[in-house]
Simulated scan of single mutants.
Amino acid sequence: MEFWSSFWNIIWFFVWAFVFVAYLIAIFSIISDLFRDRELSGWLKAVWLIALIFVPFITSLLYLIFRGQGMAERSHKAAVASTVAAEDYIRSVAQTSPSEEIAKAKALLDSGTIDAEEYDLLKKRALGHPKFSQPTA
């Protein structure tokens, strides 16, 4: 119970906990960057990983010094690719505009597939009429 008796012991504990968590984040960032790097051969990746296991602090410092710039570039490329993929997916599943829906309904009406009553229903639904709006999932 002597640990909790001093305020500075508690502060020192939190400082070391912060340093340890920051170190773990750096290690996991380095490992993920190793697997993301397509230019580095498998043997060199294995050497970096073995060095991270046996001499983690020095190896992580060396990795960040010598490969930090490439690490940032690969991380940026991955973030951009992820953003582009998400935006493409959103565009692919997004609903059409109300004017497009009305135009499609008009084409169906003109072709005789639907009657005027169904056209009015589709038109009201496309314009967001509360009585005819589709339920959200």
Rank of each mutant, 00 (worst) to 15 (best):
W4T: 13
S5I: 06
S6K: 13
S6G: 08
S6P: 10
N9W: 02
N9P: 11
W12F: 03
F13N: 07
F14C: 01
V15G: 01
W16M: 08
W16D: 02
F20M: 01
V21L: 14
V21K: 00
V21G: 02
L24T: 02
I25N: 00
A26I: 10
I27C: 07
F28V: 09
S29M: 05
F35A: 08
F35T: 13
R36I: 07
D37M: 02
E39W: 15
E39H: 13
L40V: 00
S41D: 04
S41T: 11
G42A: 13
W43T: 09
A46H: 08
A46K: 13
V47E: 04
V47P: 02
W48Q: 01
W48T: 11
L49P: 05
L49R: 11
L49F: 15
I50T: 11
I50C: 04
I50D: 02
L52F: 06
L52P: 04
F54L: 06
F54W: 08
V55K: 05
P56M: 03
P56V: 01
T59P: 03
L61V: 08
L62E: 00
L62I: 09
Y63M: 03
Y63N: 01
Y63A: 00
I65Q: 09
I65E: 08
I65D: 09
I65K: 03
F66A: 07
F66P: 02
R67C: 14
G68Q: 02
G68C: 10
G68H: 05
Q69F: 12
G70E: 11
A72H: 07
E73T: 14
R74V: 04
R74N: 05
R74I: 01
H76W: 03
H76I: 14
K77M: 06
A78V: 07
A78S: 09
A79L: 12
V80S: 11
V80T: 12
S82R: 11
T83K: 14
T83L: 15
T83N: 10
A85C: 05
Y89I: 14
I90T: 09
I90C: 07
R91L: 06
V93H: 01
Q95Y: 12
Q95C: 08
S97C: 13
S97D: 15
P98A: 15
P98V: 15
S99D: 14
E100V: 14
A103L: 03
